[in-house]
Design a protein around this nucleic acid. Structure first.
Lengths: 194, 194
DNA sequence: GGGTTGCGCTACCTTGAGTATCGAAACCAG
DNA sequence: CTGGTTTCGATACTCAAGGTAGCGCAACCC
C-alpha cells in the first residue's frame, strides 16, 4: 500500500507509528516487566499520546498481540522430514521467546487472556491459528494433534518463563525438542541424532 | 492445636473461617471466572467482610495459593517403578486441574505471578517446591530434570486451560502421560503398556 | 482559505487491590 | 457484672491502570 495508491482519503494522514510503538512495547516490557508496562508508558516511550495508541488498537491485549505477530513472523518450516520440521519449529519459537521483551510480552498477554474471553478468542484466532494451520499442512497431522503439540511446546516454555522470569536455557530446549520429537515421530526413538 | 492448649491468648478468638473462604473462593472462581472473582465477592460468598480476609492473607495471590494447597493436598506417589509413579502423578494433577474452580484459580495465580516477582517467589517456594522435592525423592532425579518435568506437565495443562477455558480432555491427558513417560523412562520405549 | 481528518493533551470514569478507622461483639479474669 | 483485650463488620479511602470524551491545533487536499 504505497501512499499514492487507490484514492487517498481526505484529511490529515495517519502518522506511521506502528513500528515505533512495537519497538517501544518490547523495550518497555523488557525493561520494567509486563505489569508495569502500562499503555501510558508505552506511548510515552514511543513518543506519542496514549489516545493515539487507542485510535490504532482497541485494547492493550490487541496491541500486544499485533506486536507479537510482528516480532514472530511466519514459522520456518524447513527440513526434509517431520522430524526436522518439528525440531526447527520448536527451536525457532524457543529462540523468539528468549528475545528481550518477547517472552515477557507473550507470557503477559497469555496471562491476561486466561480471564478475558474476548482476548482469549483474539489470541487463538489471530495468533495461534495461523501457526496451527501452517503446522497441520507441513506435518500432515490432524488438528487435535497439532493443538496438543502447541500446548506442549508453548506451555512448557511459558511455564518456565512464568515461574523463573527467564527463558529456558539451551540444554532444556534440547530436552524439549527431544521429547516432542520422540513422541511425534514414532520411528525416531532409535535415531537419536539429526 | 486444640483450643484449650498452651495458654490461649486474651481477647475475642478468631472465627474459623478458612474452610468457608476456600470453598467460597473455588465456587466464585468457577462461577464467574478468575478476573471477576474479586476479594470483595469471595468474602461476600463466604459470608464475611473483605477486611477479615486481609487479616488472614496478605494478598489475593497468597489466598489463592493457600486455597490451592488445600485443594491439591500431597501428591500421590504410588507405583512400583518410576514409570508408574510418573503416570500416577501426571493423572493426579490433570484431575485436580479439571476440578471446578481449581484449574481456573491455578491459571489465574500463575498469570498474576508472571509480572509480580513477589507472588512468583511465593508460588515457587510454597507451591512448587514441596512437590518438586517429593518428586526428586521418589524418582531419584536431579532438580533440573524434575523442574523440566513440572514445566512440561503443568505448562501443557495450563496452556490448554488458558487457551480454551476448559481442562484437557482425557484422551489428551493420555497422550501427555505417554509422552513424558517415554521421555523420563528411557527403557519404556518398547513396553507401551502398564 | 475551507473542509476533513489525525494528533496531543487534559480530564474523566470505572474497577479492583489494599489500607485505615471505628463501633460493636466475644472472650477471659477478677 | 465490669474492665481489658482482641476480633469482626462496615464504611470510607488511596492508588494504579484500562479505557473514554472533548477540545484546540496540525496536516493534508482542493
Amino acid at each position: 500500500m504505497t501512499p499514492t495508491t487507490a484514492g487517498r482519503p481526505p484529511g490529515r494522514p495517519r502518522a506511521g507509528v506502528t513500528d515505533a510503538v512495537f519497538a517501544a512495547t518490547l523495550r518497555t516490557v523488557h525493561e520494567i516487566g509486563y505489569a508495569r508496562a502500562t499503555v501510558d508508558r508505552i506511548a510515552a516511550a514511543a513518543g506519542i499520546a496514549k489516545t493515539t495508541v487507542y485510535r490504532r488498537w482497541p485494547s492493550k491485549g490487541a496491541l500486544i498481540i499485533d506486536c507479537l505477530l510482528d516480532a514472530f513472523g511466519p514459522v520456518p518450516l524447513a527440513g526434509d522430514d517431520r522430524d526436522e520440521v518439528i525440531s526447527t519449529a520448536v527451536r525457532w519459537i524457543a529462540g523468539k521467546i528468549g528475545e528481550p521483551g518477547v517472552g515477557d510480552a507473550f507470557a503477559g498477554v497469555f496471562s491476561d487472556a486466561v480471564s478475558d474471553p474476548a482476548l482469549r478468542d483474539l489470541l487463538a484466532s489471530r495468533f495461534q491459528d495461523p501457526y496451527r494451520i501452517a503446522l497441520q499442512d507441513a506435518l500432515g497431522e490432524p488438528e487435535h494433534r497439532v493443538l496438543f503439540l502447541i500446548d506442549t511446546v508453548v506451555g512448557t516454555l511459558l511455564h518456565r518463563m512464568g515461574m523463573t522470569g527467564r527463558p529456558m536455557v539451551d540444554a532444556d530446549v534440547d530436552a524439549l525438542v527431544d521429547m516432542v520429537r520422540r513422541y511425534f515421530t514414532p520411528t525416531a526413538a532409535g535415531r537419536r541424532r539429526t
